[in-house]
Write a protein that binds this DNA or RNA. Structure first.
Length: 476
RNA sequence: GCCAAGGUGGCAGAAUGGUUAAUGCGACGGACUGCAGAUCCGUUUCUUGGGGGUUCGAUUCCCUCCCUUGGCUCCA
C-alpha cells in the first residue's frame, strides 16, 4: 500500500518500523468550544485510515492528543468564569460523544496534555541541556530554531523568508524572532506547574512531542492532522523531538487532511463560520455525514454548503444503501441459515473480486472516493439480484452483502440498523398498514393516500412495491 | 512578499503517459405504478484554468503565467 507523505511530497510504499505494529498519532482538537463540521472531516478520515490498517492486519496504536489547556481555553474560561481545565474537560467529553455517534471509535488513547507535564518538563530540560533551548528572565523557555538545521523541510518554508511574515513580532526575550515558546511563565490566576524555570505551563508544540516520545519512543510511523497544522506546529514538532532525542526522522509518514471550507472559506472558530457537528449528525445521521466526508479525496479542499451538501450526500448515500438494506432485511429476519439457492461459482468470484478491488483501492493512499464509486457499481449489480432475492440462501445473501460489510468495517457506513424498525412503531405501524391495504384493495385510494400522508407527518415513510408495503422510520 | 495545496461537465467530485475522462447529484423524456416512492432505459455535459515544452501520444511529466484556498508562531 502507499501513503502520500507530505515530507516527501510523493506517495511512498508503506512499511511500518516494527510490523505488524503501527504507531499512529493525530493532532486532536483544543476543546474550548463545540466541534464543528470541519473537525469531523479529518477525524473521520483518520478513523478510516486506522480501520483500513487494522483490516489489513496491522496492529494500530492510535493516539489523538487533547490540548486541554492553552490560551484559547483560558480566554474562554475567563469569559464564563469557569475553571479552564473543567471547561476543556467538558468540551472534550462532548467531542468524544460526537465521535462515537459518527462511528469514529478507532482512537485507542486520548492523552490530555496536562497529564504529561512531567514528560514535557523532562524534554525541555533535555533541550536546554543540549543548548537547543534557552530560558528567559521571566521564567519562559524558548526553542532556538537556528540550532536545528532542517527547520522548514516539512513545510518548505525558509527561516529567512519567515521574517517578513505577518505575525512574527519582535520580542525582546527571544534571541531570534523565529524562536518559539515551549514553556510559558505563569500568569497569576491561571493554571501553573512547578518547573526548573519557575511556575508555568507548557507551550503548544512540545506537548505532542513529549507525548509521542513517551508513548512511541523517538520515532514512529504515521503522524496525521489538518493541513493547516503543517506550519508551524508540525515543523516545530520535528525540530523539538529530533533535537531532544538525537534521532531522526521523528515520523516516517506525514499525512495531512485538506480543509473543509464553508462556501469557499475555511471553516473555523476564528472566522466564525462554523456549523455544529452535532447538529449535522442530528439532521442527517452519521452515515450520511461520513459519506459526505469520504466522498472526496482527503487531501483536496472539500466545500460544505449547509443548504445543499448534506442533502445531496443523503440522496447519494440512500441510492447506494437501498439494495444493501433489502438484502439485510432478509438476513435479519431469517438469519444466515435460511434455505435457498447458493450463488454460482461465477457469482461468488464476482463478489470476491469486488471486495479485493475495494481493498486495492484503499491501499492506494486511502482512495475512499474511488471505493465509493465501486460500491455504487455493486449496488447497481445487487439491484439486478433483488427480484429473486427470496430464492437465495442465507449464505448467498451474506455474500451479496460482503462489499457492504467491507464498507461498514472500513468506511464505517451501514451501521447495523435493526433499531429503525423496532420499538413501539414496530407494533403499531403494521396494524395501520393492514387498514391501508384493505382500503387499497377496495379501490379507496383517497383513504390509502391519507394514511400514507399522516404517517409521513409522524416520520414514517411508506413505499409500495409488488411484494407489499415497506415502511421506514429514519428518525428512530 | 514567501511557502504549500487546489483549478476537471449545471453542481459535487475521481482517475490515467494511450480505446467513448469515473461515480454521484440535478434536469428532461420514457417504462413500471391507482398515485407517490424506488428501480430501469434514454437524453443532457467537460478537447481537464491560459500559454509553451518533452513525447508517436498529456488532462497526467516539465516550465511559465493566472485564479482560489490554506499557512507564515491561534487553528482538524
Amino acid at each position: 500500500m502507499t501513503i502520500y507523505d507530505t515530507m516527501a511530497r510523493a506517495a511512498r510504499v508503506f512499511a511500518p518500523r516494527v510490523p505488524p505494529r503501527v504507531g499512529l498519532f493525530v493532532c486532536g482538537l483544543t476543546p474550548y468550544a463545540d466541534a464543528h463540521v470541519g473537525h469531523g472531516r479529518s477525524f473521520v478520515f483518520f478513523d478510516t485510515v486506522a480501520r483500513a490498517l487494522r483490516r489489513w492486519g496491522y496492529r494500530v496504536f492510535y493516539v489523538q492528543n487533547v490540548t486541554d489547556l492553552d490560551d484559547k481555553v483560558i480566554a474562554r474560561a475567563a469569559e464564563t468564569e469557569a475553571d479552564p481545565l473543567a471547561l476543556s474537560d467538558r468540551h472534550f467529553l462532548a467531542f468524544v460523544r460526537s465521535m462515537h455517534r459518527l462511528g469514529a471509535t478507532a482512537v485507542n488513547y486520548y492523552p490530555y496534555a496536562t497529564v504529561y507535564v512531567p514528560e514535557i518538563i523532562d524534554q525541555i530540560r533535555e533541550l536546554v541541556r543540549r543548548g537547543d533551548a534557552y530560558p528567559t528572565e521571566d521564567g519562559s523557555v524558548y526553542f532556538s530554531v537556528a540550532k536545528y538545521a532542517n527547520y522548514g523541510r516539512l513545510s518548505g518554508q525558509k527561516v529567512e523568508a519567515l521574517l517578513p511574515g505577518a505575525r512574527l513580532e519582535a520580542d525582546p526575550r527571544k534571541r531570534a524572532p523565529e524562536d518559539f515558546v515551549i514553556w510559558k511563565a505563569a500568569t497569576p490566576g491561571e493554571p501553573e506547574w512547578e518547573s526548573p524555570w519557575g511556575p508555568g505551563r507548557p507551550g503548544w508544540h512540545i506537548e505532542d512531542t513529549a507525548i509521542t516520545t513517551r508513548l512511541f519512543g523517538p520515532r514512529y510511523d504515521i503522524h496525521g492532522g489538518g493541513i493547516d497544522l503543517i506550519f508551524p506546529h508540525h515543523e516545530a514538532e520535528v525540530a523539538l523531538a529530533e533535537s531532544a532525542t538525537g534521532e531522526a526522522p521523528l515520523v516516517n509518514y506525514w499525512m495531512h487532511a485538506g480543509m473543509l471550507t464553508m462556501r469557499g472559506e475555511k471553516m473555523s472558530k476564528s472566522v466564525g463560520n462554523v456549523s455544529s457537528l452535532d447538529d449535522a449528525i442530528d439532521r442527517f445521521g452519521a452515515p450520511v455525514l461520513r459519506f459526505f466526508y469520504l466522498n472526496s479525496g482527503y487531501r483536496s479542499p472539500l466545500d460544505f454548503d449547509p443548504d445543499r451538501s448534506l442533502a445531496e450526500a443523503r440522496e447519494g448515500f440512500e441510492r447506494m444503501a437501498r439494495p444493501a438494506d433489502r438484502v439485510w432485511e432478509l438476513l435479519e429476519r431469517d438469519g444466515p441459515e435460511r434455505t435457498g439457492r447458493a450463488l454460482t461459482d461465477g457469482e461468488e468470484s464476482e463478489v470476491e473480486a469486488v471486495v479485493e478491488r475495494l481493498d486495492e483501492t484503499m491501499a492506494n493512499d486511502f482512495n475512499t472516493r474511488e471505493a465509493i464509486a465501486q460500491l455504487f457499481g455493486w449496488s447497481r449489480r445487487v439491484t439486478e439480484w433483488l427480484p429473486q432475492r427470496n430464492e437465495l440462501s442465507g449464505e448467498a445473501l451474506e455474500m451479496l452483502y460482503a462489499p457492504y460489510a467491507w464498507a461498514q468495517e472500513v468506511l464505517g457506513f451501514f451501521p447495523p440498523s435493526s433499531t429503525a424498525r423496532a420499538g413501539a412503531w414496530a407494533a403499531v405501524v403494521p396494524v395501520v398498514l393492514q387498514a391501508r391495504a384493505r382500503a387499497r384493495a377496495r379501490g379507496d385510494y383517497a383513504e390509502a393516500d391519507r394514511i400514507r400522508d399522516e404517517l409521513k407527518a409522524t416520520g414514517v415513510e411508506l413505499e409500495d412495491d409488488a411484494t407489499g408495503t415497506r415502511w421506514s422510520s429514519p428518525g428512530a
